[in-house]
């Protein structure tokens, strides 16, 4: 769909391998991702519309989905802001310990989520290293939605940093210099020239962090209070339904999450394609 609309399947190209890679990619994607996901949809379809709607409109389902998606959006937004700052600092400034900091960013990718959950709970529980100082201030983190937010910020931060970083590295300093020579203040240059260039990458990072946060289970489960309607995330509700042998209910919620995520991702991908065209090539 990208590029000029045309009736042909693809634009002609002399580069070989289109058929081969398309075939392989679709087969692999189909076997590993699409067919199993189709089983999910199939199982949900077994419920019929009314059954699906009954689960989808259940107050508890809505509360859990709302919690998951709203906290994920907030976490992704926090990550977008701080991720941008971190990426900027790591690329543009030289200071002692920069490399260590740079390496550390990937930690949430590599640290198992269950370990992260246990470690974060140990930190933010009222008797934990951080929690004991927050408790007298009346701030409760562990076992509240705030705790979930902390976990989601933790797992999402590398997505933003790593997608924005290469773009900052490639920033064209000539344009900035030109702007500065023409009398633009640094803030102006940043807002008018630098930021727009970063937006597509920032959006990608935001989308990835969001998508990852929505489904997160391992790290959240330890630090959330898991109280229905208050701190019960959607993936936990799936697990609850599963232990009740309620496959239909579990798959219905999973399908709902999938639909919302897919819609969000697609929207962000399109937004990104649009902004890339607008700023880069335009």
């Amino acid at each position: 769909m990208a590029g000029a609309p045309s009736l042909a399947l693809r634009k002609p190209s002399v580069i070989p391998g289109f058929g081969l890679t398309l075939g392989f990619v679709l087969t692999y994607l189909g076997l590993v991702v699409l067919i199993p996901l189709a089983a999910l949809v199939l199982k949900t379809a077994g419920l019929g519309w009314s059954g699906f709607l009954a689960i989808a409109s259940d107050e508890r389902t809505i509360a859990a989905l709302w919690l998951s998606f709203s906290l994920s959006l907030v976490a992704a937004a926090i990550n977008a802001v701080f991720g941008l700052v971190i990426a900027w600092v790591l690329v543009r400034y030289r200071f002692p310990g920069r490399r260590i900091l740079d390496a550390m960013v990937d930690l949430p990718f590599a640290l198992p989520t269950a370990v992260a959950g246990i470690a974060l709970t140990a930190l933010y529980a009222p008797n934990g290293w951080v929690g004991q100082y927050l408790e007298p201030l009346g701030i409760k983190v562990a076992y509240t939605p705030l705790g979930i937010l902390v976990a989601l910020v933790f797992i999402g931060i590398p997505f933003v940093v790593r997608t924005v970083q290469p773009v900052i590295e490639d920033l064209d300093s000539e344009v900035q210099e030109a702007a500065a020579t023409l009398g633009a203040t640094r803030l102006d240059t940043l807002a008018r020239i630098v930021l727009p260039t970063l937006i597509p990458a920032l959006l990608t990072g935001f989308a990835l962090a969001l998508a990852r946060a929505v489904g997160e289970y391992g790290s959240v489960i330890f630090i959330a209070g898991n109280i229905p309607y208050v701190s019960e995330i959607a993936p936990l509700l799936i697990v609850v339904k599963l232990t009740e042998y309620n496959y239909a209910g579990a798959t219905a919620i999973a399908t709902l999450m999938l639909l919302i995520s897919f819609a969000l991702l697609l929207a962000i991908n399109l937004l990104q394609a649009w902004s890339r065209r607008g700023f880069d090539r335009g």
Binding site: R212, G215, I238, S261
Partner: peptide, 16 residues
């Protein structure tokens, strides 16, 4: 679609 597994909850990934 390639990004999709990122946004599928790990619980769902096992479930499917």
């Amino acid at each position: 679609l390639i990004d999709l597994p990122f946004s599928v909850s790990p619980v769902t990934s096992g479930l499917i």
